[in-house]
Simulated scan of single mutants.
Amino acid sequence: MATPIAMVSMVEADQQKPLLGHGCDLEAIPRELSFCSMAIEADADLFVVPDAAIDPRFRDNPLVSHPLGVRFYAAAVLQGPSGGRLGTLCVLDHRAPHQPSDRQLQQLRWLADLVSLALERHEQHLLCPVTGLPTLGQLLRVGRKEWQSALNAERPLALLLLDLNNFRAINRCCGHEQGDRFLQEVAGAIASHCRPEDFVAHVQADRFALLLPLANADEGLELARTFQQMLATLDLGVAPPGYRMLPVAGLALNHVDDEGFDALVHRSEQALELARLQGNGAIVELRDGIPSMAAAHSAGHW
Rank of each mutant, 00 (worst) to 15 (best):
G237T: 15
L161M: 15
S9C: 04
A252D: 00
G281K: 04
L236E: 02
Q270V: 09
Y243D: 07
A189H: 12
T135Q: 03
R181E: 05
E27I: 11
Q204G: 01
M10W: 14
N280P: 02
L19E: 03
L117V: 08
Y73E: 02
A53L: 06
Q79Y: 13
H255A: 07
K145H: 15
W110F: 15
E27R: 05
A282L: 05
L161H: 15
L277D: 09
I40E: 00
D180G: 05
L162E: 13
L126Y: 11
P30C: 04
A39I: 05
N61M: 07
R168D: 07
T3D: 04
I283Q: 02
D25F: 09
P97N: 12
A252G: 00
R59E: 06
R181C: 03
G242S: 10
H98M: 08
G237H: 14
D262W: 08
C24P: 01
E222K: 09
L126P: 00
D14A: 10
A201T: 04
I290L: 08
R244T: 13
R195M: 01
Q204S: 09
L33M: 08
E27V: 10
A249T: 12
H22A: 07
M293K: 01
G84C: 13
P56A: 10
D180E: 14
H255P: 00
D51V: 15
A187L: 09
D180Y: 09
L221P: 00
P67R: 08
V64F: 03
L46A: 10
F47D: 01
A39M: 10
T131M: 06
H301W: 12
I190V: 14
F208P: 00
A118F: 14
I40H: 04
L26T: 07
K145G: 06
V115G: 00
S292I: 08
K145R: 11
E273I: 13
L161T: 05
H202C: 03
H176P: 02
T226G: 13
N152G: 05
G250E: 04
N61Y: 09
L183F: 08
N171E: 10
A96C: 09
E269G: 07
L274W: 11
L231M: 03
M38C: 06
G87H: 00
E185Q: 07
A158M: 10
V77G: 01
P67Y: 10
L136E: 06
D218V: 07
P97Y: 07
P240M: 09
Q178H: 10
H122R: 08
L160A: 14
R95Y: 06
R59C: 09
L161N: 14
R85A: 10
E177P: 01
L111C: 12
R109P: 00
D288A: 12
L234V: 01
D55C: 10
H193F: 11
L108Q: 02
P50H: 14
V186Q: 02
D113Q: 15
L114S: 11
T131P: 02
P4D: 10
E12T: 12
E219T: 03
P129D: 12
R31L: 03
D206F: 06
C128W: 06
A209V: 04
R95G: 07
S101D: 14
R85L: 08
R244A: 13
A191N: 11
R95S: 08
A271R: 03
P4E: 10
D60Q: 15
F227K: 00
A215L: 14
A96W: 13
G279F: 09
P129H: 14
T226Y: 15
G21S: 07
